[in-house]
Amino acid sequence: MAAQFYAVFNEHDVLPKDFSGKHEARYDVELRRITTMTRVPETGERVKVSALVALPVGARGALPVLSWQHGTILSFDQVPSNLLRLGDEGYQLRDNIDSLETLFNIQRFAGNGYAVIAADYIGKGPLRNGRGEAYAVKGATVQCCLDVLDAGLLELKTLGLRQSALFLNGWSQGALNTQWLKQEMQRRGIKVTASATQSPFNNLAESFHYWVNPTSYIPSTETSYPMPPAWITPCLVVLLGSYRQYYGLSDLFKTAIKPQHQAFAETYWADYSLAGDTAKTVPPAADLLVDGFFDRFTQDTNSRLLRQLGRNGATFWDYDSPIRFYYGLADEALHPRLVKPAIAAGGRFAAGVPVAGASHRVTFLASLYGDGTVLNGQSTALDWFNSLM
């Protein structure tokens, strides 16, 4: 199945067109859905969440564990645990409906002897119950991932399995989550053998600004660098909705979004749908926010948002175990200059892997299936993790 969707992610054929036999999985994989309770530090609520555990069939004793943090999904159910739909032999996976990024991680890691544990996140998946997601909300995200990892390890224990080494991996939103998760584990003294991130957002205030005004970040000499795509506007709405809900910024849509776009934002935040006439009302990201949002004081709530985004950044951290930042040199959602400060500040264990010609999706795909030619002489996350055991 991974081979089926490889071409979908391999935009502009940056990687070889053929899904190489060397990428074939060594094990069949068993998928399990687990549930657990998590606490939302920002609000004090306790919430039930779902997650996926993927195991190599026939595993015994100790095996390496991968905590996988998925990227942005502009739906409520495109989550890791919904891959259990594959239990229906007639079910057909679809792009933008199913968690194909999780499928690739399962194929590469669980298919090669790892246990993969993947949170669906708060406000996502079968246990959503109408709750808004906690997109880029630090405390809720970190606690959810920690609680899911604990629940996943308990599931392994009930099956007579145990962890030999712990690895973290995440793409896009999940790359930010992975940095947060590693940093919190470091604070708590939890050993992580290594972490990998792809398209790693880290400075939220700067990334938020970039999405709205990319030309202020892209050097004038880079005339062909791709601009942020149309799906950035829905991402901005989800970010604002999440911060309104979890940080108590109750009037944020009214203070931050231009009046003519507030109805669209409310509608999209409620249903994540661009069906029908809604699609006609999506503004360009550059026109979503009130004038002067990043240039001067506009409203107290807007200033509070920017301060919170600053506090939630992951850029400036001294890592105590190896971490790789895979970043695309043609990533339409994240310019390389927004990645490099985290690498420079991360200490001797931090390393960047530029991916030649890579879009947002290709950056992720290359981290799993690329070779030294596209990975600047470096290895895939799987091969790198294997070398550290």
Rank of each mutant, 00 (worst) to 15 (best):
E155G: 14
V79D: 05
G248Q: 09
T178Q: 06
F208L: 10
V355Y: 03
D251I: 08
L375E: 00
M1V: 15
I232L: 07
D95N: 13
T281N: 01
D147I: 09
K48P: 14
C144N: 13
T72S: 11
S250D: 14
A2R: 04
V148E: 06
A263M: 10
D318R: 13
E155L: 11
S273P: 02
R296M: 15
T267R: 14
L305C: 12
P16N: 04
T197F: 11
N177H: 15
V79H: 04
L66P: 01
F253D: 07
Y268R: 10
T221W: 12
G113Q: 07
S67E: 04
G357Q: 03
G125W: 02
V49R: 01
V65E: 00
T158V: 11
A2M: 05
T221D: 13
T178N: 01
V57A: 10
A151E: 06
L153H: 03
F297M: 13
T380W: 02
E24P: 03
L31G: 07
L204Y: 01
Y327T: 05
P200T: 12
F325I: 10
A134H: 03
D320E: 14
V148W: 06
I34Q: 07
D320T: 13
F201C: 13
Q179L: 13
W180C: 11
P56W: 02
A115I: 02
S81V: 07
K182C: 06
H23Q: 08
N177F: 13
S242M: 07
A358V: 05
H70A: 11
W180D: 10
L153C: 07
